[in-house]
Structure formats: C-alpha cells, structure tokens
Nucleic acid binder design. Sequence first.
DNA 1: CAGTGAGCGAGCTTCCGCTTGACTT
Length: 582
Amino acid sequence: MAKNLVIVESPAKAKTIEKFLGKDYTVKSSIGHIRDMPKKDMGIDIENNFQPSYVVSADKKKVVADLRKSVKTADQVYLATDEDREGEAIAWHLLETLNLPKDTPRIVFHEITKGAITEAITSPRTVDYQVVDAQQARRVIDRLVGFEISPVLWRKISGARSAGRVQSPVVRLVVEREREITKHTTQSIYKVKAELVNDNGEVVDVKLSKDFDSKDEAVVFTTALLDAKLSVSAIEKKPSKRSPKPPFITSTLQQEASQKLGFSVKQTMTLAQGLYREGSITYMRTDSFTLSETAIEAAGAVIEKTYGSDYHQVRRYKTKDAGAQEAHEAIRPTDLTRPEIYGLEDQAAKLYALIYKRTLASQMSDAKLQRTQIKTNISNRDETFVANGEILVFPGFLSVYDYLSSDDKLLPDLSQGDELTLVNFAARESFSRAKPRYTEASLVKKIEEMGIGRPSTFATMVSTVQDRNYVTKETREGVERAFQLIEINEGKVEQSEPIENAGAEKNKLFPTSVAYLLTDFLVKHFGDIVDYKFTANLETDFDTIANQGVVWQSVVKEFYGPFHAKIEAADDISREETHGMR
DNA sequence: CAGTGAGCGAGCTTCCGCTTGACTT
C-alpha cells in the first residue's frame, strides 16, 4: 500500500508523476485553488487589519473531501503545487484545510521529467509564508478594487457592470486605439514601382528611392522617365542571417495559432488542453522559454539524424520579462520523435504540428542569406531605382519553420554600367493607415508586454470584456475608395482612377459605447487603477513581501487609504455628469 | 368591463488567478 501522498495542482500532471514515482506513492491533485474569499461578500475585515475569510469553493468540496481521505491513510504528505506565487498559496490553503503540520514537506520542480521529480523528493523545504503573504496581498487588493468600484458603476453608468485591475486597462486599450483611429487623417503619397529588363531579357523588379507627395510631382517624374537612360550604378552584396524564435509560451502560441491557423485565443487553449491531457505536449499555461535538458538532447538527436549536424545548434532561451514566474517549461511536444499526430481531430493535429516545428526549430542553426541591392541610375533625374534580392544560402531552421519559398527573391546577375530598359511602370497613390485594431491575440500580446494578467487568464480576459459588453469582436466589410494611378503605355503617360476596397476588418475588437463612458469615468476618478503601470508597480511591492519580509497588510493599507477616499468622492458625482461625458 | 401602461420598489450584478469538464449559446 502507498505510504506517501503527493499533491499537485493538475490531474494530468498527477497521472504522469505517479508513473515516475512508483508504487510507494499516490499522487492526487487539487485542481487549482481550493479556497477563496466568499463569492457574494467582500470577505475582508477591513477594520481588523484586512483579515480575509476563506471558504472552500463550492466546486472543490468533493476534491477536498477526497484529499482528506487520502491524507488519513498516508504516512507522509508532500505538497507539490507549482513554484510560483499562486502555487505557494495553494500549498498553504491545503495545509490549513487538511490540517497538515506546518513542517509538511513542500517540493518543487519546473519540468515533468523523472530526474527532476526524484531530485525534488530528496530536497524538500517547507511552505514559504512570505510568498504566501505576497499572494494574499495580490488577492485582497484585487477584491477591494473590483468590489468597491463595481457598485459605484452600477449607480453611475448604465450598462457598466464591472471594473478591475486587469479588465479595466484592457478596455482602456481598446477605447484608446479606436480613438486614435477615429482621429487619424489619411494622407496620400505616390509610390513608384517598375519592371526593368536587361539585354538578355532578364527582369528586375524595382521601386523608386523616393515617394512623391503629390500627383503633379509623380506625373512630372513619369514624363521625364520617357526620355531617360537607365543604367546600373551600384551593386552591393552582403551576407545576413536569421535566427529561430524561442519555443512557445502561452502568449506566443496564441499569437501564432491566430496568425497561421486562424484560431481564436480560446480555441487554441481548448485544443492545447486536450493535447496536454493526453500527454502529447507539456503544460500550456506558462511564461517560461526553458526547455528541459532531456528535451534539448532529444531535439538535437532528431535534428542530427534528419538534417545533419550542420543544422543543429543548442540554444537556451531566457525570458526578458521581469514579471515572469517560470514555474513550468516552455510548451513543447513530450516526444520529440513524433512530428505529427495521426487519427486526431484536424485542428488539434495542426496545433501540435505547429508546436513541434517551433520547438525543433529553436534548436537549429541560423539561416544564412545573401542580400543584394542593385541601384539603377536615371539619367535625367536625381532619384534611383532600387532592387532588393535575398537568396537563401543555407536554410538552417527555415527547413522546418517559417519557410516561404516566395521569400526567395532572386536577382539576375548584373554588372555596373549595364543598360536596362523600362518594360512596366506604375506610380500609384497609397494612403497612410491608422494603427490597426486589436485582435484577441494582439491584445494579449500587448497586455503581456505591460505585465498585466497571467498566462492562465489571457483567454478568459479577452472573453470577459466581451461578456461585459465593453468590447465586441466584429467583421466589417470595407468601403470602395478611388485612387490615382499613373502608368506608361506604348510610350505615353496614362492616368486613371481605379477603385479599391479599403478598411475591411476581420475579427477585430471594437469598443462599445459603454466602454467609452466607462473608460472616461475611470480615467477621471480612478486614474491610478487604469494606469498601465499600476500592476507593474504593485508587483514591486509584492516582491518586497516575498523577498524582504515586508508585512502584507502594510502594502494593502498603503493602497487602500487613498483608494477608498476616491470611492467616497466618486459617490458624490451626479449621474448627469457621467452621462454628459463623451 | 377588459386590457394597457405609467410608476414604483425590490433584488440583482462585481474582482483575479489556479484548475477542469459540464452545460448552454
């Protein structure tokens, strides 16, 4: 019978670890957090030094009951929740709820490999109360912000139901982007492209070194070109290289799956969850670029065997993000000898293949390129025609990832002084574009850069702001727009005004009218909460709790004083005022 | 006389982060 009980967060993880540990160990999971403050009330005794009250969540009653049973029959319990702020807190909640002794061993590992787990068992520590306290400060502040501002909104802004440390800056981003787009005035310039040909009939695509501001200038140039002699004035060749990107983390997986496969953020996470559960990939909610050494070796072996050692380069990626907590590995296949999964739902198979390729590519050598630039002199003008070519000399990682053969722009072998003839010419009006609207994936990227939100919440966050009716995802058809076109046909300058479709949007995020009102209200009365640096500043405070033993209540108190004063002040604002704002 | 509608009052909403399925749109 098993004497040792190990408790982790994820059931899928529990299964894998149980295999590694053998018969003497039972591995159970908490399925995330087991306790929280009550759903309905504030659950914080503000007068009494912000004492939070915790209750076992309704959907975890069974889990806790089951764990209690297992604890009874075990000789030794190990708390093996993730090594990050939330994981430490879960370990503490387990300790309290299951009445475990304070010195219950706490073990941690950052990868699910046999080596990492057996190593962890031999070097236990105890629960780190400073880290737990940092989590409590985080939790209490989030509750205070959400539960004090939201009721103010119910009274002041019809349609506004909620505000929070994360969701409100997210809404603000979408609103501000839309305002920029509204303010944008399109300006037009004239871009010149041409096809030149040498004596052998080889064609070179060129563009002009300068754009024109007006149609008149473009016409003057085009007319001059009719009598011009074109000759190669300079050829410049230089080697360049491209390096692979690091393996996937949650946000980059969401990005690439959105761009390359057209998946929504939620869709990606659901598919990844399936792959994780069946053991095909590592954990999908992570902010770490790290690959385990066993994975690095396995990838290397596959690369050497399939492509040869020239294609292999061991790389270890480090995060630049100060807020990353790195409790897990990067997202990778668990078996690197398996490039594809057959008999699987189509979309999951595509996502797996993407993850496989990205992982393998991250351990491959640079692609080597030869860039060539050819400048062509125009006898009666100062501008020059420029042709850029790029030849793939050695594919390296591009053999498996990101390779588009159309990228290879081959230029004919020309020499300085070669005469060229114009065969095709177009100067077309092109319009300046406003910044693009966010997609779900680009919004996630943006908030991650700002250090707001965590990998486990990226997907729910983009759906929360839509559920609250602050943001809508829309596909809009463009409108017809005329543009000026100048061409050369049979030795004559010809002008026309064709129509193009402009401003079409697919699955882009738009703010609702409530979002404008809400954002303006929050910026005016709770500027620090919707400040994009709010979370980052809090993180520094949480670090002082975790690392320097600062009392968590002092951090909460310092925040709450000025914050609550603003709540009181906001209550005096008349509803008319909030409706006059726009 | 029956059906309509204005007006009033009561009850409800809410945060972020960690995990999965179950269960509706």
